[in-house]
Each structure stands twice: as C-alpha cells, then as structure tokens.
Nucleic acid binder design. Sequence first.
RNA 1: GGAGAGGUGGCUGAGUGGUCGAUAGCGGCGCUUUGCUAAAGCGUUGUAGGGGUUUAAAUCCCUACCGGGGGUUCGAAUCCCCCCCUCUCCGCCA
Length: 423
Amino acid sequence: MLDPKLIRESPDLVRAAIAKKHLEVDLDAVLAIDSMWRAQLQEVEALRATQKAANAAMAALPKGSPEFIAKVTEMKAVSAQVKEKDAQLTETQEKFRLAMLSIPNLPHASVPEGRTPEDNVVFALHGSHMEPKPHALPHWEIPGFERLFDFARGAKVTGAGFPFFIGDGAKLARALLQFFLEEDGKAGYVEVSPPIFVNAASATATGQLPDKEGQMYETTPDRLYAVPTAEVPLTNFFRDEILEESALPVYRCAYTPCFRREAGSYGKDVRGLNRVHQFDKVELLKWVHPSTSYDELDKLRLDAEALLRKLDLPYRVLLMCGGDVGFAQAKKYDLEVWGAGQKRWLEVSSCSNFEAFQARRAQIRFRSKETGKPELVHTINGSGLAVPRVLAAILENNLQADGRVKIPEALVPYFGKEYLSFK
RNA sequence: GGAGAGGUGGCUGAGUGGUCGAUAGCGGCGCUUUGCUAAAGCGUUGUAGGGGUUUAAAUCCCUACCGGGGGUUCGAAUCCCCCCCUCUCCGCCA
C-alpha cells in the first residue's frame, strides 16, 4: 500500500509508476473516492464535536431539569444524523481501502523499462552453462528418477504435484536444506521456525490477499492459509509493532514447506520438479532502515548467489523490468539456475525490495532517533534457496555417464557420500 | 472440548453511564541542585486520521483509539451480544 498523501499530492508520479509496471489502475476513481471520504469525514467529525460539547453541558445540568430534557430532545436528532452519516463514511472508507490496495508499489528508478520477461536485463552470469554436457538429461528422464521422486504415488495419495521424495532423493533434499540454513546462519540470518498456517490479516499484510486468494490452500473450518512462502509468517512477526532504530537491521531466515495451488500453469514449466504444489524453501528476510534498503537488497542477493556458487551451479541474475517486477515490489532480481538437461533457466530465488509497501500494510515501524517519531521500515526478502529446482539442477548438471549424480563438494558433508544413485 | 477468571497507555495498576485520552506509581525525556555518580525537587510524556497555517516543519483546531466487531443510550473504558487472546482447573493428546 502506498501513502495516501503521495496519491493526493503527486498523482502524476503514481501514474507514471503504474505505466512503468504496465498495469491498469483508475487513479482518478481512487482520487474521487478519497475526496468524498474526506468530505464525509469532516461532516461526521463536526457532528461528533457538537455531541461532545452537549455532553459536557449536560453533565453540569441537574438530571431531570427542563433544560436537560430539552437538550436530550435536541441531541436525539444529532445522534440520528451521526448514525446515518457515519454509516456512509464507513462504506466510503472501505471503498477507499480496497482502492488503495489496488495501487501497486512504485518501481525504483533503476528498474529497466519493459513489458515482458524478454525485457528483463541479464545482470550477471556465473559459471559455464554453455559447456556441452553429453550425458545431461531433463531430470525426469533420468533412468530411475521415479524411484527417488514418486509423482504417481503422490498423485494417488494427495494429488498432482505432491511427489514423494524417497531414499537418496529425500536425503538430497534434506542435505540442501541443512546446507542452506547453515550457510544463511553464517551470513548473519537468525534462524526461525515459523507457523506454516497464517490468518487472513497476515496474508493481507504481505499482499497474498485480497487478489491472490486462489493461489493459496485454505483450511476449513478455521480459515487459515497454508503458507505459499515463509515470507508471510516471517514478515508478520513484527506486524503492528514499533522497533527501536538501534535494533535495525534485523536479519532472519526460515525454512518452511511452501504450498502453492499454481492455478493456470501448464506445459513444460510443470514437468518433474520444475513446479510442484508443495516444496521446501529457505527464505531470507530483512527489516531495514529506509536509507539502507538498496544496499541491503544487493547484499541479500549476493548471499543467495553465494549458495549457488558453493554448489558450483551455473546461474544468472536477472534485473526485472517494470512489467515483470511484481505488484508489491519496488525492485526485483531473479536468480536462475541452469538446467543442463532441459536446457533452460530455472528460477530458484527472487530477491526484492518492497520499500515501505509491506510495512505500511503490516504497520511495521521503527522509532527514529532523530525525530523520536515512528517511521515505516523497509522490508527485503529473497529465497536462500528453493529446494526442488536446485535439486533438479544438480541432477541435470552433474549426471555422469554411469547414471549416477556427482554431489557438489560443499554438499557432501551434509549428504554423507559423493554420489547419488537412482538404483 | 468443558468450567471459571481476566484483557486499560512503554510497564504495573485505578476507574461500573456524563466534565475520562483516562487517577497513581515505575520507566523515559528536560531542567534545577551537584566535583562525578547516586539521590531529591520541579516539569514533561501515546498512536492514528482530518483541517488550518507554512517553502517546509513546529505550534494550533477537530476527531478516533481502554483486545476486535456489533448493539443499547442524548451520552459507553463502564451495560448487552458475538468473536479473538491469556491464565487456572478438568478432559484429550505427539
């Protein structure tokens, strides 16, 4: 959510931002609702002031006196008026709130222009993804794949996209998680194990609601949402709180399974481990002082990159263009690992600065040393990292002629052996 | 799941229909006293929204906020209803 003052005072700035993101928002309608809201607010507040003044006068009068009774009669009319106008005001306020939720975050000046994924800028390229790998196969075509990653039984037990991980498959997933958490811990992120169901208020604060409701699994009868990412419970940790400025920045990481309905996805994107409904991920999250947020974003991105480097996987960093930067983000980098068998890039981390967008929704503030007043923090997050696609990339890039997979050196202590076998 | 007790400002804790944004204490901040520290005395002390003034801020005016939402009433922290949370006891249970 943006600052309502910004929309009132600099509507053209907001219009330009919306255009850069290639989104459609009727800002004039929002402004009209805003001015209606303010007019109604003033009316109601004036009536309330009348009530308060009368209240003070009546307190001084003897209860049954003619003056008192006259006042009651008089104020009954005012009371009825307040009730009516206040109902209108509440309605307008709700309209305004929903309208505000429909306005995207402003993209940062450094975000490149562009509409589609083709317009994203390759910001960095690491490793030799072009090196020919004669043995490479799409991971789902590797002989024995289904012994370690059993999609058919997952579909029987739960549904499509809920595979079983078995034997070395399960072990490799666990080794990756352990590796990520240990490395992230060394980089300064305090490990947190959060709830994996959240309430509607939390999902709204991070932007999953109201629009992306269909992407989450919802429980009945408690109306809790299975987290699509640890970002949701983690960000909400400080919801409605005021931190001390000296406490910033706060660095945290969390492993959770992530649940995504992925309604509407299809084709090659969803083969094998590329896209599943439940997957393990470690999320990195920072709450920072606004003046440092872009430096902190770069550092967080480098922390995520370091994991891929240690795993010796070819990857690239995309700087997302305006049309691909996302509704709530001001700036976003995607980390994509090379799938040597599929011969395509797989997104394994998305590192974003939300500036104050989430913090305003979630009311996460800090007390400024300078002014003593609360200000909104900036929030930054990114995966560090998502397991299945990294796992898939290891399978594809490290497949040997004998059908085994060489485990990256950094991972061997966690996996316990040097090769993964599909037998 | 059952029974009971609670939820008031940064914290503790008064307040059962009107002058209560709310007594008091602690903490914080400022000043005085002081060689320093401590102590004492005095003063001050939340958040949000709107309006107005202003280059801007401060100041100023108004409104809201006593777990959340609704109701009763001229008027609600206070009365009624629903929900959430905490604590105690019981039940169930990894």
